[in-house]
Amino acid sequence: MDLELRFFATFREAVGQKTLEREFDDDATVGEILLTLESAYDGLEGKLIDDGGDLQPNLNILKNGREVLHMEGTETVMEDGDTLSIFPPVAGGA
């Protein structure tokens, strides 16, 4: 299946672009997709999934604009054509 991946703030620099079209196995879960991205981009390594296999506590992952935490978390299944957005918090203000 093909997914659209959208990155924000620091994750854009890690990936080198704002959006990415990428093919994944059918029925891949959010956790599997994030681990694949971590292996593909050095700058994402360790930033998305923690040692216990859970989402890192300081990011926001959205499936089609809805937080996956309020679905099945890392077990949320993605479907062809879905968009996955990955946001870090930012603190700047000066």
């Binding site: 924000f8 703030a9 620091t10 946001f87 918090p89 930012v90 603190a91 700047g92 203000g93």
Partner: peptide, 8 residues
Amino acid sequence: AIYKFEGQ
């Protein structure tokens, strides 16, 4: 909050 060209 802001970051380069982005805001939240």
